[in-house]
Amino acid sequence: MKLLLFLLCLFAGSAFGQLAWATTEQTFNSKPQDKEVVAKYKFTNNGTKPIKIQNVRTSCGCTTAALSKTEYAPGESGEIEAKFTFSGRTGKQEKAIMVATSASPEQPTILKLNVYIEETIKIEPEVVLWQVGEQASPKAIHIAIADDAPAKIVSVISDNPALKVKLTEVKPGKEYEAQIIPDSVAQPAAATVIIRTDYPPDNPQTKYAYARIK
């Protein structure tokens, strides 16, 4: 009996007094023009004592976490609002928010925020490179437009006449190949390939690729 009581005391600290989270992981699909995602993580103090949220940290400067107050009475609910600002990020993004409470200061709860930011216009590779003295053969840059994006390539130009661009449509309106053709690779040279689009209509994107002879 004494042993049983001891074991109950041993586990009581971890079994009670925690915040109960409605969810600790959220996933969003976004477009680059959305600029940001806001996720709300709701919780309830299911314990018998007040719980103080001591610290909320995020894994990235691109993510902020806001809390209306820090102390929650037994039975009281609250939420943490996490805002992830894209700032040029595309593709799969995994951000974390670490919440340390008075109930478990050493074992913070980790809230996960997963965002897939669609890449409307994909350019691969972003850089084409020649070494000085190698053969002056053309190199290709592929430009692809996401299926559901009503975007068009308006123009593709090089800012250096010694590195010319020849654009070919591979799949009408959706895939292009830009051949970068150097006049010569005897000397170092640099060019920026400027890819103008008509999307989104209110603020059309300009993308860049780069050619270097080094």
Partner: peptide
């Protein structure tokens, strides 16, 4: 950094060698 990629990446390329 990702925020200013289009401005900073060309400067990186100018300094970078393979």
């Amino acid at each position: 950094n990702l925020e200013s990629w289009d401005q900073l990446f060309p400067k990186f390329l100018d300094r970078w060698t393979p």
